[in-house]
Design a protein around this nucleic acid. Structure first.
Lengths: 114, 114
DNA sequence: GAAATACATGAACAGTTGTTCATACGTTGA
DNA sequence: TCAACGTATGAACAACTGTTCATGTATTTC
């Protein structure tokens, strides 16, 4: 579910002060987005795909997790539109959905290593 | 620190900017950082403080939560160094720790509203 | 077609998380 | 000092999350 509040535009952003308080639903979506990044397995998957598209089995081997666990987490990453996949024979080749994901990861890492 | 994967089999660093697979511990820290942003109450608190330092009671009233719940979450935000506080009489005035927090929130919101 | 491969999915379980309730702590003003 | 206020904290509980195990589905090869 990726519902975006369509009927709520708060004040104009663009200052050291953002709008006061975004719509409740938007805040839920924001929390949900961060939640996807908040698990180690999913972070590992994202980093495994950082610059290399991989099959599910490849991911599992790379990060040292079972195929099932990876598949479960890929479902969540897919729902959040953080990864996408193409078919190659019987394999599904996953990759990061767009550069936004790179940015989010880099931003977080940047904060950690300040 | 700048720890790169220790026991990685193969690596193909081609993307400008980031290593292939960071150290396990760093990935845990990264997941933990995102985890702090992954709760609605904490997101509300951060937005309540986005451009206005506030006391605990003020925060609670602003976001519509109990004082206790807010205090519990502030402890987590403090531990993550996302907020700081100054004393004013018997009140504790909380504010965002630094601009990194603004950036993280904005980045996430940016992704949501793409 | 059947077997094999690659992946997805459901149920169940343990571990974690956030809230409420009650209470303790610390500061202020009389 | 004491009472009142603002905040922190611990325990308990319900809700959620991620893993494993078993099985199902889809695609390819024989």
């Amino acid at each position: 579910m990726n519902a975006i509040a369509a009927d709520d535009q708060d004040a104009a952003p663009e200052h050291p002060g953002e709008p006061c308080m975004p719509d409740e639903e938007l805040l839920y979506d924001l929390a949900d987005l961060f939640k996807v990044f908040s698990d180690t397995t999913r972070i590992k998957i994202l980093y495994a795909l950082f610059d290399t598209p991989r099959s599910v089995g490849d991911i599992a081997e790379t990060i040292g997790a079972t195929q099932s666990a990876v598949s479960h987490q890929l479902r969540i990453l897919k729902q959040a539109r953080l990864v996408r996949f193409d078919r190659d024979g019987r394999s599904l080749i996953y990759s990061l959905a767009d550069d936004h994901v790179h940015t989010m990861l880099a931003q977080g890492m940047n904060h950690i290593c300040e």
